[in-house]
Design a protein around this nucleic acid. Structure first.
Lengths: 144, 144
DNA sequence: CGTGTAAATGTTATATTATTACACATATAG
DNA sequence: CTATATGTGTAATAATATAACATTTACACG
């Protein structure tokens, strides 16, 4: 039940111990195959006593800050990071299948370098970068 | 303003004729320096007789489909395309300044190639790609 | 041990963003 | 003309997110 995920494979930041609500939200998200909306998480946690969206949003804010949950901007939804010891300093990218709803996370290092090169040239200092591909995954293509 | 790379690999001037509402929405967005939310557009068009969000959303759907307006997923807002003859086949990227709200559109060809290479390997067929950098622009960095 | 302070939580209300449903109007191809 | 696509008007509601304020808990430090 408890998500003490203390991989500490990332020395730069140790992962803070999660609070009760953060742990509950993280557990629900981790148990789900795909992304969940904040309200879906809320519903999943009503049995644990959750009553208001803010309880979810506050926990999500922290989890995203810790780098162990990602927000999918194009879906207004959230996923647990699929990296083992989630490297929160890396920019993640997501391939979102519009047919089955599945999400595949990957680390587009080369693409990020290209974007960083543009940013350097433009004098833009990125703090976070969103990369989301919407489309059709291999399985759904095959099933077409 | 950079990002004037002209793909020019598309049939020029095949802009569909805009309907009344589409034209009104496009004009408002074009006159604005930065991004606007749907409701900001609605307010701007009340004097033209707009009364309901759907009038805006329907026009925006078409304008985005035509490729002359982009949706900024991380802001839930919209911008007119900054390309002259907007190449709707190219993936645009956006550098969004969190300090001044300014948005700079560019065409990250190399980065898109890298993402496409990943997609090819994964058997994922992208239909649209979102690339948004949040951060601080040159001017705001200087003013810090 | 207390105690001060920062963080987390509980709760109500409200703001913001987006869609459903249905009626009617207009454009355009055949 | 007339069938059909698409666009429009309007009301109601759904879905997503935050503000404001009271209270509780974690925890460093004297």
């Amino acid at each position: 039940m408890n998500s003490t995920h203390v991989g500490s494979s990332h020395p730069a930041h140790d992962l803070p111990k999660l609070t009760k609500n953060q742990g509950l939200v993280f557990d629900v998200l981790s148990a789900e195959a795909g992304p969940m909306t904040a309200y879906a998480i809320l519903d999943a946690l009503r049995s644990e006593g959750f009553k208001a969206p803010l309880q979810v949003y506050r926990a999500l804010d922290k989890l995203v800050e810790f780098g162990i949950v990602h927000r999918l901007e194009s879906l207004n939804a959230f996923v647990a990071c699929s990296h083992p010891g989630c490297a929160q300093n890396e920019t993640a990218a997501f391939a979102i299948c519009e047919r089955c709803g599945g999400v595949n996370e990957f680390t587009p290092e080369k693409a990020v370098e290209c974007l960083q090169a543009w940013a350097d040239g433009a004098g833009f200092a990125p703090s976070r970068t969103t990369i989301e591909l919407r489309g059709t995954c291999r399985d759904c293509m095959a099933a077409a």
